[in-house]
Each structure stands twice: as C-alpha cells, then as structure tokens.
Design a protein around this nucleic acid. Structure first.
Length: 473
RNA sequence: GUCCCCAUCGUCUAGCCUGGCCUAGGACGCUGGCCUUUCAAGCCAGCAACACGGGUUCAAAUCCCGUUGGGGACGCCA
C-alpha cells in the first residue's frame, strides 16, 4: 500500500475560520491515522484578494490548534512556471484552446442565459476557432468532453454521477497568465502525489471538472472525500455574520485548543456515544466511514461545555501557563507576573470548576491578585453587619494563633470554633467569604485562605471586621 | 433556472450499509431534585426526534420511488 498523502489547501483571502480548521483537522487526522503525510499548500493565485497577513493568520491558527504539517507551506504563486508549462502542454495536445472572449462579454452572456433560464456556462464560442498565436490577451480553456458522464466514488458521500453535458470548458490560464483554481489544484495534487483529496462539500461540483484534467495530464486520479459544511444557527454557511469565526478569536476568548479540536471533530464525526477524546485516541479511531454526510450547525454552548471540561481536567501546570497572558485583560498583568508558578497552579485548581474559559478564570482570579480588595457594596451590606463583628473578631484572633495555615488545619480550627461558640457554619461562612473575596460567591473559604496565605487572610478579615463594625445610616 | 448534496430530539449525534434486539440510545442546552459554607462542579430525574406520502416485506428510522424542506455549485474567486 502506497503512502497516504493528503493536503490542506486554504486560500489566504481572509482569516482561518472554524470550517477551515475542521477540514484541516480531518485531513490531519486522516494522515496521522494512516501514518501518511499532510501537505500544506497556500492557494494564492487570486492576486487581488490574497494577503501575506492572511497567510500568517492561517499558519498561526494551525499552530495554535496544534495541527502540524509534513511538507510546505507551498505557495502556488511560487509555482507559476509549472502551471504554465502544464497548461501549454495541454494546448500542444489539443486538449486546450485559446479563447478571446472578454470577461465583460462572458459576464453579459452569462446573465442573458440565466435570464432565459438556460445554463449559464461557457457556450464554447472559441472552441473550434483554432487560434494558434493569440494577438493581445487571451485565456486558455480546457477542452472538456461533452458526452458521457463522470462517476465519483466519494469516500464520504458515496457514488455521485455527473453528466458531462452540464459541464463547460473552463479557463485554466487567465489572460494575465495566472492559472485558475481548478487547474492549479489539479496540477499540484498531481505533482505532489496527493492520494486522497479531503475537502469541503462546496468542491463536490468541481470534482467532475478536475478529473478530466488529471486524465489529460496523464496522472492517476486521487480518491475524493467531501466534507459537509458547518452552518450557523440560521443554517446558512458559517460566515462573519455568525460572530467570531476566526480560529484565533477563540484563543483570545480563552478557549483551549484541545477543546476546539474535540468539539470540531465531533461536528461530523462520531465514535458511538463517545464525546471526549484524547488526541492520541482520535488518531487511532478516526476514519472517514463515520463522517456525517449532512451539514452541522455550529453550537457555541457545546463548545463552551467542552472547554469547561478541559479546564476542569487539564494539567494545572499547563493551564497556569496558558492563563497568564489573560491577566492583562483584567489589569492585573503586573501582579500576575510576580506570582510564582506554584501559586498560579494552586489558583487554577481552586478556580477551574467555576470557569468555562480562561477569560472567566482571569476574572475570577481578581480578588486573589488584587493588593487592595474591592468589596462589593451589596455583599458588605448584607453580610458584614455589626451583629457579626464580635464573632468575626474572635474567629480572626483564633486563626491568628494557627501555626500551620493549611486547608485542613484551618477547617478544623474553624469547625471547633463554631462548636464552642454554638454557631452554625452558615452564619459565619458568608461574612468570612465577603471579607476575603469581596464577593458572595467564591470557592470554599478554606481554599481561599490557603490561596491568600496567612498575612492577607488575616488582614482581610480585620478589614471585614472594620467594615462590619462601622455604623451605617 | 440547471446541476449536485443532505434530511433522527432546539443543536451535535448513535442506530441505517448487513430490516426484527428501537415503546429510538448518548451529549449540549433547558427544567426539577440531591449534595452543600456561597457559587459552581458532580450525581439523579424529566421534557424533547425517525420531514411527508407511497411502495417492498410477516416486519421499515433502516430498502425503493416521489414530494417537501434545507444547503451547495453554476466566475479570467478559491
């Protein structure tokens, strides 16, 4: 069995979006599963719309989700001679011909045909003109067969049959000398030895136009697998209208790459009822046979749930590292920079059950990094009352005497204190919580004390007592 | 308009190929409960789908045909 070679071939006309990442992911998984190669090819033959920034965004996006490639990135604009050479070869073989029709003319004829309800394709006007040396600008068209049919045995969709009479003669070389998409893909897929073309559904109709070109070039035809599209909630193809679709935007929103991967792979592929997959497991289990034929709606809620799952189960050390850049967003970049890695891991462990994204986690971390605690007025109003001040004072004195400021000892001391005072935990926990965090909701108070450390815990409790003891209007 | 693809809970899906085990399973979300020092997390329960119509068959979510609906493509874009 020959080596499997697949490719991901984005065009750099915009950022790398969710749909593109999924296509890349399925190719990547297919290649890794088969121990084959993934080739990254940038299809930048559209001079007007391709940008270097977009190329960079694609590479950054791929790297962020951890999809690496074995060859490339190749840029089609660096392979122009190749396409021209191959195109001219087809001309020599009389499988292509010069066309003098202008773009404007073609556009007008297309509209006219559409209006009449006819097929809008090229009418073949120059097909038999036998133009050998074109004067001025001319495009080169592929001479397609008009009879018979093309059968595609699609790896995902199954057998798809196209009648050749619905196809027209497509341009392979523009009058500016650049190849068109349908030609450059074929040349590259052929020359790069691609064995499986796994791409979006929107290319299914291009397949019967590309197969004859493979044949004309004298090259073996690869297998094809067409992935269904990802839709927005309105069931239309996912686009900018559906919010942040750039993959890097999800990075900024505090999503974990593994959550993204796991979510995306389940959007169209399944392995029984399993939802959570480690990467190694995906490589082992992935196959095209279980890829859904129908399109899928992107569900942000499930992605969020998936992210929460990975935050909750991920390695604290790694999570802590990923979290650090987010403190800038909450104006605590400096404080965070001073915090040790060990402390940061502890922070992650205490906050992870309450944060669905790294952004949420950074926000939740504010009370623990703040030098001067911001206390929510409503929280103080409700729980830091004069009535509680004596108990709070006594508790603080007691805590002050604790030598080992660990969670277990703290908890034991606290419980003993409650018993002696005849208090219930509910009566004192909230005042302590508000003193310590300034909020009514937080992780368990002993975890908080542990995180804050002795000095800050005691200082904040004293501050809480002061707040509780002060007279109010 | 023409061609192509698709069709199971609101959403992602299992089941479909190889009909019976399906009074259709799981997940997200939603609702309720439990746990509980708050909030979460966790656990338990509940709501909720085979688009429609014909066939084939003893039997159809599963096979066939049609209808409807959705999507995609029809470019000197990719």
């Amino acid at each position: 069995m020959a080596e499997v070679r697949v490719r991901f071939a984005p065009s750099p006309t915009g950022y790398l979006h969710i749909g593109g990442v999924r296509t890349a992911l399925f190719n990547w998984l297919f290649a890794r599963h088969a121990k084959g190669k993934l080739i990254l090819r940038i299809e930048d033959t559209d001079q007007d719309r391709s940008t270097d920034e977009a190329i960079q965004a694609i590479l950054d996006g791929m790297r962020w989700v951890g999809l690496d490639w074995d060859e490339g990135p190749f840029r089609q604009t660096e392979r122009m001679d190749l396409y021209r050479q191959q195109a001219l070869r087809l001309l020599e073989q009389q499988q292509a011909y010069w066309c003098l029709c202008t773009a404007e003319d073609l556009e007008a004829r297309r509209k006219e045909a559409m209006a009449k309800g006819l097929q809008p394709g090229y009418d073949g006007r120059c097909r038999e003109r036998g133009i050998t040396v074109p004067s001025g600008s001319a495009a080169l068209r592929f001479k397609a067969s008009r009879e018979g049919q093309i059968v595609v045995e699609d790896l995902i969709k199954g057998r798809v049959v196209f009648d050749n009479n619905v196809l027209d003669d497509l341009i392979i070389l523009r009058s500016n000398g650049y190849p068109t998409y349908n030609f450059s893909v074929v040349v590259d897929d052929a020359l790069m030895g691609i064995t499986h073309v796994i791409r979006g559904d929107d290319h299914l109709n291009n397949t019967p136009r590309q197969i004859p070109i493979f044949k004309a070039l004298g090259h073996a035809i690869p297998s094809f697998g067409h992935l269904s599209m990802i839709m927005g909630a309105d069931k239309a193809k996912l686009s900018k209208r559906h919010g942040a679709t750039s993959i890097l935007a999800y990075k900024d929103m505090g999503y974990l790459p593994e959550a993204m991967i796991n979510y995306l792979v389940r959007l169209g592929w399944s392995f029984g009822d399993q939802e959570i997959f480690a990467l190694a497991e995906l490589i082992e289990k992935f196959d095209l046979a279980h890829v859904q034929k129908s399109s899928a709606v992107f569900n942000p809620d499930k992605l969020l749930w998936m992210n929460a799952h990975y935050i909750q189960h991920g390695e604290p050390k790694r999570l802590a590292g990923l979290l650090r850049p987010f403190f800038g967003q909450v104006d605590l970049g400096e404080a965070a920079a001073k915090a040790s890695d060990v402390w940061m891991e502890k922070l992650v462990v205490t906050l992870r059950e309450r944060a669905k994204t790294l952004v949420e986690m950074a926000t939740a971390a504010v009370p623990y990094l703040q030098e001067e605690l911001t206390v929510e007025p409503a929280a103080a109003e409700k729980f830091l009352t004069p009535a509680i001040a004596p108990s709070l004072t006594k508790l603080t004195d007691r805590l002050e005497g604790v030598a080992d400021f660990s969670k277990a000892v703290l908890e034991e001391t606290f419980k003993n204190f409650l018993e002696e005072e005849g208090l219930k935990i509910g009566q004192l926990a909230q005042p302590v919580r508000v003193s310590l965090t300034g909020r009514t909701a937080s992780p368990g108070i002993f975890e908080v004390m542990d995180l804050l450390g002795r000095d800050r815990t005691l200082a904040r409790l004293r501050q809480g007592i002061a707040l509780a003891g002060r007279t109010r209007p």
